[in-house]
Design a protein around this nucleic acid. Structure first.
Lengths: 150, 150
DNA sequence: CCGTAATTGATAATCATTCTCGATATAGTA
DNA sequence: TACTATATCGAGAATGATTATCAATTACGG
């Protein structure tokens, strides 16, 4: 079985687990988010689905992403300096380090970071559901580029 | 001297410190963000400025906020479930705990939290400029409300 | 395999944000 | 205080991402 089919099946399983009705569009979108580390934009997702031979409209992409967000399967990242939202599979909590120059997004899995939610709960009395941490800076490559142009 | 005038002067000083040209609109907008704990939306800021007897257009509010963001004086928070951005004076780093029911935003000043940026820098090699942490949950009051309706 | 409720998708509508550009106000200097 | 270059202001138009519409299609429990 090719890798592509495996991830489609994994996505289908995940949809069933979360009691979300399975459709080809949803399977492809979720499998893309589960396996890529692209943190894709709406447009990238739209092109990916069509590029893989499935019909889809922008409305469906928006609807599907909202559904996945509501089920805490993915999160929305306000990351792209072009004003486009980016999306990420988020079953395993992590945070994002974003290059303000090239818009690259790097995942960081850090156990220390997970303590922040508990602290927030203690400090405020809120019942915490989730949280989002984003760090902005220059990636090593862009630091080099800027040095060379100076 | 009344409090209102003091905060206008404090805002003027801050603008001068950051070498931002001073205008009445900028002074009022910054003083509002410096003193209120509203985390106001664009619309709230617009109404506040006009309500205090200053002329202003929406374009100026947007321009001014972008200018203050670029100078790291304030940040933009994707917080309001109505899809409106919210703004906050951010000279002293802190994070936000947001009620998903009533949209209330609570500031938390926590020294532990500040370490996250350093960790991110070490993990990724990025040159970090700033970061943003948002926690989503239910505030104590909304927890009560929901209990009563159950 | 059927019936029903949910989903899809082409298009239109919405609305927050950005752009335009003439009018106006500011900072710096003397 | 007056002058001048320069930047900002602001009303309305333009933009463009997102949402709504609704008929046709599809998924899936029984």
């Amino acid at each position: 079985m090719v890798q592509e089919q495996k991830t489609l099946l994994a996505a289908a399983d995940k949809l069933k687990e979360y009691k979300i009705k399975n459709t080809p569009q949803r399977q492809v979108i979720l499998s893309y988010l589960m396996t890529s580390h692209d943190h894709p934009s709406i447009e990238m997702i739209f092109n990916y689905v069509r590029g893989n031979g499935f019909s889809v409209s922008l409305a469906t992409v928006y609807n599907t992403l909202q559904l996945l967000i509501d089920n805490n399967l993915i999160i929305e990242i306000a990351a792209d300096s072009g004003g486009h939202m980016r999306y990420d599979y988020f079953e395993v909590p992590h945070y994002h380090v974003i290059c303000v120059n090239c818009n690259r997004i790097v995942d960081v899995f850090d156990d220390e970071y997970k303590k922040n939610e508990k602290n927030a709960q203690l400090e405020t009395g809120f019942q915490v559901f989730n949280s989002q941490y984003e760090v902005y800076g220059l990636c090593p490559e862009c630091q080099e580029k800027i040095k060379q142009n100076a």
